[in-house]
Write a protein that binds this DNA or RNA. Structure first.
Lengths: 163, 163
DNA sequence: ATTCATTGTTCTTAGCACGAACGGTACGCG
DNA sequence: CGCGTACCGTTCGTGCTAAGAACAATGAAT
C-alpha cells in the first residue's frame, strides 16, 4: 500500500488546493460555493434558483442561503421572471464586476502558487493529463463534489509549514 | 479566462478520487480513515493512540472510535505498554494480514482505474509532477487534510471557477 | 506525599446536510 | 369559471459529524 500512488497524491493535493482556495476567497468574504454561484450566474444570467441548484449539484434549500448572502452583499439580484412569477431571475449587479475581477485574480494567484514549482511547459503538460483524466472519469467542467465550505477558521488537521 | 485551471482540476479530480476510494474500501467494511490507521500501525507497530492521532492529524477522541471499530473487528489489538500503563500499544492482529492484502489490492485497482486513460509512461510522468507539487506545498506523505468519512453517492455541493 | 502532567475516554455543544412540509403561482381540463 | 395537479422558493425538523471540555487512571517531579 504505497501512499505514493497517483490516486492518493491527487486526493491529498486536491484537498490542499481546495483548502487554500477557500482561504483565499475568504479574504474576499466569499465561500467557494458562493464563487460557484457567481460563475454560473455570470455565464447564464436570468437563471432560476432551481436551475442553478441542478447546475451546481446542490439541494435547492442550500441555494436559498447562498443567494441570500450574495444578495444581501449587493452583488446578486433576485428579479421576478415576468413570464412566470414563481421563478426568480438571477442577475449580477453592476457592483459585482469588480468583485468578479478580484475573484479571477485570486484564482490566477492560486493556480500560480500551487504550480510555482513547475515550468510553464510542465504546467501545460500536467493540465493536459488532468483534463484527460477528468474527461475519462465523466467529470463536468466547473462542478465537483463537495468539500467543506469553511476551512479557514480554527485549528485544523495537518497543514504544510510555509504559511 | 483561459488559464491552465490546474488547481481546479486537482481539486475536482481529488474529490472524485477520494469518493471513489471511499466506495471501494466500503466494500471491505472500512472507511478511509480506518485505512489510514491500518497503514500507520502497520508501519509503526506498538505506537500509542496519541502518537497515532498526531500522525494522522485527527483529534484523539476520534482515534478512540477508529480503534474501537478496528479492534471490535479483530484486526487491531490494544496491548498495554508495560513501561507506561497509561499508554496502549497498538498492534495488528494476525487476521489483519489478509485484510491488508485486500486493501492493497483495492488501492492498486483504484489507482489503475483512475489512470486507465494514461499510458504507463504518462502515469509516471504525472506521479513525478504531483510529487514535486506535494513536496513544494509541504504535504507529508501519507497524511492529507480531512475528507469526510462516508462520501456516499449522489450529487453534492460545489465550488470553483473555470471561466 | 503532594502536586502536576499525560493518556485514553466520555460528554456536551455547535454546525451542516438533507428531506419533508408549506404558501404561492401556473397550467390543464371539465 | 372551478378544481386539481404540478412546480418554485422557503422554512422547519432531524440526523450526523466534528471539535472541545471535563473526567478517571497512571506516571513523573519536587
Amino acid at each position: 500500500m504505497r501512499p505514493s500512488g497517483v490516486a492518493f497524491l491527487l486526493a491529498q493535493i486536491g484537498a490542499h488546493a481546495a483548502g487554500r482556495f477557500a482561504d483565499r476567497v475568504a479574504g474576499l468574504g466569499l465561500t467557494p460555493a458562493q464563487v460557484g454561484v457567481l460563475r454560473v450566474v455570470a455565464q447564464q444570467p436570468g437563471l432560476s434558483q432551481q436551475a442553478l441548484a441542478t447546475e451546481l449539484g446542490v439541494v435547492p434549500s442550500k441555494v436559498v442561503a447562498l443567494v441570500d448572502a450574495l444578495e444581501h452583499r449587493g452583488v446578486l439580484e433576485r428579479r421576478r421572471d415576468p413570464g412566470d412569477r414563481r421563478l426568480y431571475a438571477l442577475h449580477l449587479s453592476v457592483s459585482a464586476t469588480e468583485l468578479l475581477g478580484q475573484v479571477r485574480e485570486a484564482v490566477r494567484q492560486h493556480d500560480q502558487e500551487l504550480t510555482s514549482v513547475l515550468t510553464p511547459a510542465e504546467r501545460d503538460q500536467l493540465a493536459g493529463l488532468l483534463r484527460r483524466i477528468a474527461d475519462a472519469q465523466g467529470l463536468k467542467p466547473g462542478v465537483h463534489p463537495g468539500y467543506r465550505d469553511r476551512l479557514g477558521s480554527g485549528p485544523e488537521p495537518e497543514r504544510g509549514p510555509r504559511d
